[in-house]
Structures are given as C-alpha cells and as structure tokens.
Design a protein around this nucleic acid. Structure first.
Lengths: 186, 186
DNA sequence: ACCTGAACACCGTTCAAGT
DNA sequence: ACCTGAACACCGTTCAAGT
C-alpha cells in the first residue's frame, strides 16, 4: 500500500530558498524545511541527498533566475545602453536577494555546495563583443562582471564606509569602464 | 589557589585562523580549536565570547594583515605603478588566504560575525587621488577595489569557465581601468 | 513507495565543582 | 582566576517499522 507523496523537490527547494533569504543560513535546518513543506525531517531525504545538496539546488535556482533576468534586460540594440540596463538589472536582483546572491557567489561559504554555476548569459557576451570587438570580448566581459559583482558585494557587506554617494560611485564606475572597453577605432 | 592560564586569545585566534584556512568552515569547532591550543572546549569561553566572536576576531586579523600588505606595496611614487603593485599584492594575498579572504568579504557567510571591517588603506586612497584628482578619488577608489575584489572572488570560485587567459584578463582589466580613471587634463 | 519515531554521533554553550 | 567533566538543547542523518 504505497504512501502518497506529501511534497516535491520543487517545494522543498522553494521553502529552503525562502527560509535562507528571510532568516539566514542558520535557519535553514532540515527540521525547519520539513515543517514548511508539511513533512518530518527524515522524509526530506527522499527529495534531496543532504543539506549541502539542498543548498546547491537553492543556489542553482537563484543562478538560473539571475540568468533570465539578465537576458530580459537587453532591449535597445545599442551595446552601451544594453550593458547599462543589464548591469542595473543585475544589481536590482542582488538587492532583492542579498543573502542568496552573496552565497551563490561565495564559494567556500557552504562546504559541499560548490558545484553550482554562475551561468554566463550568452546575450551579455554578445553585447560585450559588439562594444569591445571580438578579440577583447572575453577579458572585457570579465572586467565588467568582476566590477559589478565586486561593487554589489561590497555594497551589501556595508563596506562603503567612507560616506560619499554610492549611487554616484556606481554610475562613475559603469561609465568609465564601458568607455574604457570600447574598441579604439570604431 | 588560582589556576594558571594555559593559552591566550592570540593563540586561540591563530589556531582558529589556521583551522579555517586549512580545513574549512566546518572544521572550525570549539572542540577542535581547544584541542589545538591544549585546553578543553569550555575554557575557550574565557578568551572569546562565542564561536561567532572567534570568527569575527579571525577575520579582523586577516583584514589587518591585508591592510599592511597593501601599505607596503606602494614604493615607486608613480601612481600607476603603485596601484598596479597594490592590486598585485592584493591578489597575491587573496590567493594565499583563499578561504579566509572570501569569508572576510562575504557578509552573510557567518551570522553574527559581520562587524569586521575591511580597513581602507590610506596609502591606497592617496595614490588614487593623485591619479584621478581629489574630486573623483572616492568613486575611483571604489571602482578599482570593486573590480579587484570581484575578479579575485570569481577566480577563487572557479567562475571563469569559458577558458581564455585569466592572467591576460587581469592585466586587461587593470590597464583599462587605470587609464579610464586618470584625470582627463593632467 | 513514501512517511515516521527513535536513535546516533555530533555541535555550541552553561555551570557547578575542583585547584 | 582559570580549568574541567557533565549536562542540555540542538543539529544532520540513518533505519527499522508502519501504511
């Protein structure tokens, strides 16, 4: 007489993600997640291999959503405008998901959950190629992503302690970097 | 009849830092640290308030060392050369301390241990001011640090998966950003 | 097939008792 | 003053037993 499933992997991952974002890493316990989806902790092992595996699934979910947010942000066809829009969308996403965004990008934060990938948006790479030329597309893309990720991480960490206008620093950095990356003779 | 101290806060912090860097976050348990300094776990609470407090002390220690590494790297007096040397020293330090560097910069990684500060090197700010002019010194410094930190984090996370030459991407980013930040009329 | 309570080996932390 | 063993409330995970 088979017992019917009371939950699903998707529900477990969603509950884990919400718990993580709203109450922090320590609140993501197997017993709390089980509570949220209406089963007992041991039943979760029918859906995920371990707590680390659950972390990995949650962060993969976040990475997938970020990728589609980026792809949807490029609309005008002008590389500078599109890269600005993608950077803004990237930052908005991180601000809306500060805990999971940070964990997604910090490799050693959760041991065993390191296999997640920050998917490169093909749209992003193509847009950079149009600005920087195909020869420099890869290092140029890495420069933009490194800057945006670094800026956002430090912002979320409260590392900008010397006052000044953080919005202004974002615009300054974005404009200077896009200008610096542009192919010399166009 | 007072019992003599068997250890010190400095020894506890040093043991914690080594454990963290060599065996990861999960290995930093109170019992392991106690073992390393030759006492029992409850005695550690004479030196640190809690495990979170120990994390905070370890990461402050890392931040202090990073600051002095940066200060020591500027030698020539030429702003471009000095900023290049500081960036290289920053990256070397992160490569030598990958786990603790990442944790130091990732706010939510260890709940309760967020009070640590990434000290700004005064030397660094002054050098940037000489390159970018005093008006843009702060946003320019934030641009450089954001890029360097972002680049290194992604590198340590193994996020550069599309092949290509990572050293070349570092040089490309550094040169372009320093050029972009330079005061227009000099 | 999935769910469950009981159990195990851990963990951070507290505290009374020792010197 | 500091150190210790014992204890407490947790945790992830396993597993035999239930349906």
């Amino acid at each position: 007489m088979p017992a019917h499933p009371q939950t699903s992997t998707a529900a477990v991952v969603a509950a884990g993600r919400r718990l993580l974002e709203e109450r922090g890493v320590d609140a993501l316990t197997m017993r709390e997640v089980a509570d949220a989806v209406g089963v007992r902790a041991p039943s979760l092992y029918k859906r995920v291999r371990s707590r680390s595996d659950l972390f990995r699934l949650v962060l993969e979910d976040v990475a997938d959503e970020l990728t589609s947010v980026l792809d949807a942000a490029a609309m005008t066809g002008d590389p500078v405008a599109d890269l600005g829009a993608m950077a803004a969308a990237y930052r908005r996403f991180a601000h809306a998901n500060p805990v999971t965004y940070t964990l997604m990008m910090a490799p050693q934060a959760i041991p065993g959950a390191t296999a997640r990938s920050v998917r490169s948006s093909a749209t992003f790479l193509n847009t950079v190629a149009r600005l920087a030329g195909p020869m420099h597309a890869l290092p140029a893309a890495r420069t933009i992503v490194a800057w945006a990720h670094g800026f956002i991480t430090m912002e979320l960490a409260g590392a900008f302690r010397l006052g000044g206008d953080v919005e202004n620093a974002w615009d300054f950095g974005l404009n200077r970097i896009l200008a610096a990356i542009r192919r010399p003779a166009d």
